[in-house]
Design a protein around this nucleic acid. Sequence first.
DNA 1: ACCTGAACACCGTTCAAGT
DNA 2: ACCTGAACACCGTTCAAGT
Lengths: 269, 269
Amino acid sequence: MTPTSPMDPSSDASDASIDARGTTSSPTTEVGAPTRPRPPAGRSALSRERIVDAAIRLIDTEGVAALTMRRLGAALDVEAMSLYRYVNGREDLLEAVVDALVDSIRIPAPGQLEPVDGWQAFLQWLAHDVRRLALEHPAAFPLIATRHPAAPWLRPPLRSLRVVEAFLEGLRARGFRDEQAVAAYRTFTSFLLGHLLLESAMQGAELSPAEEPLDEGDADLPNRDQDLDLTDFPALTRLRGQLTEDHTEEEFEAALEHLLVRLDLELAQ
Amino acid sequence: MTPTSPMDPSSDASDASIDARGTTSSPTTEVGAPTRPRPPAGRSALSRERIVDAAIRLIDTEGVAALTMRRLGAALDVEAMSLYRYVNGREDLLEAVVDALVDSIRIPAPGQLEPVDGWQAFLQWLAHDVRRLALEHPAAFPLIATRHPAAPWLRPPLRSLRVVEAFLEGLRARGFRDEQAVAAYRTFTSFLLGHLLLESAMQGAELSPAEEPLDEGDADLPNRDQDLDLTDFPALTRLRGQLTEDHTEEEFEAALEHLLVRLDLELAQ
DNA sequence: ACCTGAACACCGTTCAAGT
DNA sequence: ACCTGAACACCGTTCAAGT
């Protein structure tokens, strides 16, 4: 069971920008849009896609707290109020950011992956692609993880109709029955969520809070060096070195391997 | 391997209020505090503990977004600025909330649990107590899950020195070697995080966003009924019923059982 | 010692007005 | 059709001032 690397040989989109459209682009929209007036001056025209892209960039570089309508407008050389033409307020913008990120998950089409190893390779590929997403956007991943999805059965981090559909069909095409595919969806999402949220929390630690200059000895406020005072905690003092080591990647691989074994057992019965 | 129910027979604290002290109450603080002046009028005096309690209550009932310094002050019959005597700003308050909640996790002392079943019973007990915490405070659990901890090795949701120390010592007392206990800490936290975050996200779905009245047919904005338009998604349409069923509890039990089996295997080698 | 009024900078959002 | 100025309500936070 070799882990398949998530490298799409026929990837057409540029890797930096994100495939960001409206949440559900109904096919009836944009029926006849023949003459688009050109942007007037040097900078290009606004669009929902450009806004979402800039929002993702802002989150990646400065954290979710820095994503304010006014600062996002400034990043796009525009006043904040202009954004409301394309976005239904900040909540809707965050939703669009999550959708765009989740939509960047690529799922191997049937035939695109070597048929050897079957569903194991399929899940390995998908798991590593979601992990790539989490590590590329550690500051945004908590949004994917915690914003409540549109339907209760759209479980993070696989919270798009397209992805879940492809997941279920992918497993069916590789021998799962319907109920087995649904059960696998549940265990797979829980596994991804736990591991990737921990990993992205470790990665993007320095973003969320502003720098806090400590004031001089105000004694009735608790001191902030929680990670230093390990008296009364002998096990922690003894194991601090081991605990600090980063084994997230091996953890991920080992847990994924165990998940596949577990699914294999449940397939047989 | 029977799941032990987390019911502490000798629970002294009232179940509603939370054991909320400062982040790390250094023993040198509060050395001699002999004469505390009584609160002047009908309502009781402010304190960090009362503030944190009220904050948790506000989050539980109205969501994290509703926790503002001004509203919290109003809930305590006080102006917002008074809170800054006890709390180092909103970030510090949120940190205190997380600490108080995590500190409500009770860990069976050696001897308190029946020695039969050993470490499996210990982990079962602990897992169910953390699950209780997540289900009692679904709106606050994302904070526990995503706020980056004080030390990188304090992994959510077990992010307090006391809890991690007790975890490691509890396993050692039941036959784990140091490195095995550390490995178990890693897999156990990932497991808890994934399952409980999903479960609490399902539970507290209606809190985060304000009610959004939909405006009439503005055609160039995406429509919001994402959970309804399932054309082009045959698997989802077919399996929608199964997907909607809530099996979170069985999932949790099954995954926990598998985790114990997995740890058992790694113990032997 | 503890709380507050006033003030500041920043925020989301609306709407009439500009081009 | 698209962007903006002005305005409103709300926010976190500071600090001198009250009791």
